[in-house]
Nucleic acid binder design. Sequence first.
DNA 1: GTCTATAACGTGATAGAC
DNA 2: GTCTATCACGTTATAGAC
Lengths: 204, 204
Amino acid sequence: MKIKDATTEEKIKNAARIVFYKKGFAATRTRDIAEEAGINLALLNYYFRSKAKLFEIIMTETMAAFFQNLMIVLNSKKTTLDKKVEEIVERYIDLIIKEPEIPTFIISELRTNPGLLLQKIPLSEVIKTSIFFQQHQEAVKKGIIREPNPLHFLINMLGLTVFPFIAKPILIGSNELNDWEFENLMLERKKLIPIWIKSMMSTG
Amino acid sequence: MKIKDATTEEKIKNAARIVFYKKGFAATRTRDIAEEAGINLALLNYYFRSKAKLFEIIMTETMAAFFQNLMIVLNSKKTTLDKKVEEIVERYIDLIIKEPEIPTFIISELRTNPGLLLQKIPLSEVIKTSIFFQQHQEAVKKGIIREPNPLHFLINMLGLTVFPFIAKPILIGSNELNDWEFENLMLERKKLIPIWIKSMMSTG
DNA sequence: GTCTATAACGTGATAGAC
DNA sequence: GTCTATCACGTTATAGAC
């Protein structure tokens, strides 16, 4: 094992991330990962027991990193509900612009792997015990928010934020929208979505 | 070839739809399809040249059926913009409740198959020449709608409608939400989304 | 048209030299 | 730790009998 520099183990993991994100588990060949990492196929099985094991590591880390953002913001005592929306929308749009394949990767792989590691991310508890939940209830009581179910709030916020990235191939492919225009559209939404959320959730 | 009854060709296609929707192209084995269809594996290659060819047929039909709804409604001269939103939201929620795997299937497979058949569904032209587009522009001119870009309108409408179904595994897996509760939540949204859209798009 | 048997190939994983 | 060579297996697709 090398002392410093980019470990081969890390090189393999980075390569695995790239290929798994792009092709998904089933369509990925371990040879692709090895080539991407610039190492031999046998090394992959030396460091990680199998393709499945390597995948599970990537998947776990990806899910954790992706939802961590959400959890932290939802549980902040220092920010208002409006500010939480702003932060989440901004964080996720920036994150997904950097790593555009993550949402579709998560969605696609959760389809096959049923309950792979959902238990490890207890969204349920976070929702019902979070500061966000308390603030939402308070806003409902005050009449600032009409819809009493916080799930609608979360779904709307994440849907408006994440959906366009998932649907990107359709937008790009069918419209004469190019990558640059698409990104600009998404940056526009960083400012628009919080405004939209505020007005839509006070109606109904 | 049989005269009437369910043709074996149809039986294979129906089986292929089920398995492809569930597992995706890469993870699907032709044996699974044959078994699901109750026929022999060789017959699959007799009717359709290959796994890829069979998949392409299913994919094409699925995409066409899925987007046809959208196109028809967007081009109706008889309905107002508000009514178009109501119709699209209702149609898609009903459709996806019946066939829940379709959105994730389309998203997942478009990732690998780059521009498989996007050219065949010219969303671009439909947007720019549709009645919807004219009505949207008119509403912007009158100040009823603030955001001038119709893409935001479409993205928001489809995002609020389709996204929760795509994110269902996360909602079900992490929350103590069961299938029945989830479906009820979606049915609620049939009424809520048009109201939300109306109020959010008049702001910003 | 439908089946059984099998060919042809790709892929995950390991053995063993260095 | 890292490589080459190879095994073992699953899967697509076809040949050929019925």
